[in-house]
């Protein structure tokens, strides 16, 4: 009898303790939960609500609009170009960035005396903020006094011209992503055990096969990570359009969903339009991310 009682109290003690730990866990999580609620979940829900509502210029909901906002947005003649630019940036940016960063990482992989020097050089873009980079590239791309036209002996209009504006933006966004992605690729390559590379040497595997059959498969988790994050970043590109292209006559050649949203939300205070654009961009990104997870299942090897 006494044993049963002891066991019971033991169980309630345990239970009490578990409740206590749970409370503690919740308390510790509270700050980030509050933060997320205020800055992540509320804006998201509000955007969804806005997209179905009639919103005035002060951002106050004046009534239910059904799908009117969507019909209006997709009917605008600048929507399709913006969508096309967004997709182009993602389609060009992601593969080129992957190619450049993997190549640079392969070149820098071996530890040499000067390794720290070019490792630093390759990662330097990381230390520049997007807006600063935009200002620097704006002056470098300047058709009249810019360094790039001068150095390569070109006479291109860059951001002043309809034909070249998007290329200028692409060069900038690719340059921006190189630093961090190179760092990720390099650390992934260096994490491959030396003996595996030595085994390929003894086995007589040529460098081409070693790269494509051994090294790249072994860093595939990192490649996948870079692919996903780059895809999202590329789809969300807006800063160059606003900072570089803002007042340019060729601005319409680079409008993306995100820059269009910025213009409509902050300049024109058309919150319905802005909400629909952000939701469209969100769904598009979500779709691509899901697609890349399909790729992950087939091609990514986790150790």
């Amino acid at each position: 009898m006494r044993g049963v009682v002891a066991m019971k109290t033991g169980a309630t003690l345990k239970h009490r303790q578990r409740v206590k730990t749970r409370k503690k866990v919740f308390l510790l999580l509270l700050p980030i939960l509050l933060f997320a609620a205020v800055f992540i979940y509320y804006p998201f829900v509000r955007t969804v609500v806005n997209s179905f509502s009639l919103v005035n210029a002060k951002g106050i909901i004046k009534g239910f609009a059904g799908l009117d906002n969507y019909a209006y947005t997709y009917g605008r003649k600048d929507f399709l170009p913006a969508l096309r630019h967004t997709l182009t940036i993602a389609a060009v940016n992601v593969p080129i960035t992957l190619f450049i960063t993997i190549s640079l990482a392969l070149l820098a992989n071996k530890k040499r005396r000067l390794s720290p020097v070019y490792e630093t050089m390759f990662t330097l873009p990381m230390s520049v903020s997007m807006s600063a980079a935009c200002m620097i590239f704006k002056s470098m791309f300047s058709p009249s006094v810019g360094f790039i036209n001068y150095f390569f002996g070109l006479k291109l209009g860059w951001y002043e011209s309809q034909e070249t504006a998007l290329s200028a933006v692409l060069i900038l966004t690719i340059w921006m992503s190189i630093g961090f992605d190179f760092l990720l690729m390099l650390s992934a390559l260096r994490a491959i055990p030396d003996q595996i590379i030595e085994a390929t040497r003894v086995d007589g595997i040529n460098p081409f096969r070693r790269i494509f059959k051994v090294q790249i498969p072994l860093i595939s988790p990192t490649i996948f990570y870079v692919l996903c994050t780059n895809l999202v970043l590329a789809m969300m590109t807006s800063a160059p359009m606003i900072i570089i292209m803002g007042v340019s006559s060729a601005a319409s050649a680079t409008t993306t969903l995100m820059s269009m949203m910025y213009q409509s939300g902050f300049s024109s205070s058309d919150y319905g339009l802005a909400a629909v654009l952000s939701i469209s961009a969100f769904l598009l990104t979500l779709g691509f991310t899901i697609l890349s997870f399909v790729f992950e299942r087939k091609k990514v090897h986790y150790q």
Binding site: Q195, I196, L218
Partner: peptide
Amino acid sequence: VFQNYALYPH
């Protein structure tokens, strides 16, 4: 033959 086998894990 290496001490840690050095097999290609993938």
